[in-house]
């Protein structure tokens, strides 16, 4: 037998690093999936990519009406800029958990017919999320220019915060995507998380409005801290670095354990679908 071994199939799971190496090799596939989903999303729509602007703009108008006209919050910054920073982090997060969480379910036919690292599917959704995130970012910059908000040099930290946002989103999204395959109950959990999560997250109200004895939850609320970081960058609000580091560590832990759980189930995903 002088032919070199090309590949071997056993039920043994790859190590986390070997698996991530394979996913890296499939990076072209991640991009292709992301492109596919974007094209499909806007196929045969007249307004195309403008739909991505319409949704956050509508949300912004509603928040503006309630928190400036009905309830008066005084923030010392334009409310629209404030709300936009919150929505940026929150929408990206929900996109990551909603889309990544259901990515495997929505590609069942593919999973049953072709072999490829399954993690590619939730990751492709994360790239898609970045597109909508960019839309929010453009919206924010426009709002800041209109309202005359100053830009600070902290904007150079933005890429890091975006990466942290992805980590936080995927730490939940990857768990959900693997769990949904085994437990369809999770399918109901996702809209629940998104629907109620916005109320316990300082998206359209500032975290400082929450009474002190409740604010301890922000140590365990990763996305609240990501939003705090966006506000630190764009409107110069103070942050508690220990709190940010604590909650981010929790996310990193969740991401690693989520990946391990995903890999442990990866080989039998097709059997559960």
């Amino acid at each position: 037998m002088s032919l070199p071994l090309y590949k071997s199939i056993t039920k043994k799971n790859e190590s986390l690093l070997t698996y991530l190496g394979e996913v890296w090799k499939s990076h072209a596939l991640i991009v292709t999936f992301a492109q596919r989903d974007l094209k499909i999303q806007y196929a045969q729509t007249y307004l195309g990519v403008f739909w991505s602007f319409i949704q956050p703009l509508t949300a912004l108008l509603i928040f503006h009406f309630f928190f400036q006209r009905v309830i008066h919050i005084n923030l010392h910054v334009p409310y629209s800029v404030f709300a936009c920073t919150g929505m940026m982090g929150w929408f990206f997060f929900t996109q990551l958990i909603g889309q990544s969480g259901t990515a495997l379910m929505h590609n069942q036919q593919l999973i049953k017919k072709i072999q490829f690292p399954r993690l590619v599917l939730p990751l492709a959704k994360a790239i898609n999320g970045l597109v909508e995130f960019s839309v929010m970012l453009i919206l924010l910059v426009v709002l800041m220019l209109i309202t005359g908000c100053p830009f600070s040099a902290k904007i150079f930290y933005l890429p890091l915060v975006v990466v942290a946002n992805v980590v936080v989103g995927l730490s939940v999204g990857i768990w959900l995507s693997a769990l949904t395959i085994r437990f369809r109950d999770m399918h109901h959990l996702i809209p629940f998380l998104i629907g109620f999560g916005i109320w316990i997250t300082p998206v359209f109200y500032p975290a400082t409005m929450v009474p002190d004895n409740f604010s301890v939850i922000y140590y365990f609320h990763p996305i609240a801290n990501i939003i705090a970081l966006y506000r630190w960058i764009f409107i110069g609000w103070q942050i508690d670095f220990i709190q940010v580091a604590t909650s981010f560590s929790i996310s990193v832990f969740m991401l690693i354990t989520g990946l391990i759980y995903f890999i442990r189930n990866e080989k039998f995903i097709a059997d559960y679908l």
């Binding site: 037998m1 032919l3 070199p4 071994l5 090309y6 590949k7 071997s8 199939i9 056993t10 039920k11 036919q109 593919l110 999973i111 049953k112 017919k113 072709i114 072999q115 080989k267 039998f268 097709a270 059997d271």
Partner: peptide
């Protein structure tokens, strides 16, 4: 696409399988 509970399969060349034409 799925994996065995026991046993091993070794490939000594590039393989492609068509379980369904037009999958993907």
């Amino acid at each position: 696409v799925t994996f065995p509970d026991e046993g091993e399969i070794n490939f000594y060349g590039k393989s492609v399988s068509v379980l369904d034409v037009g999958a993907g």
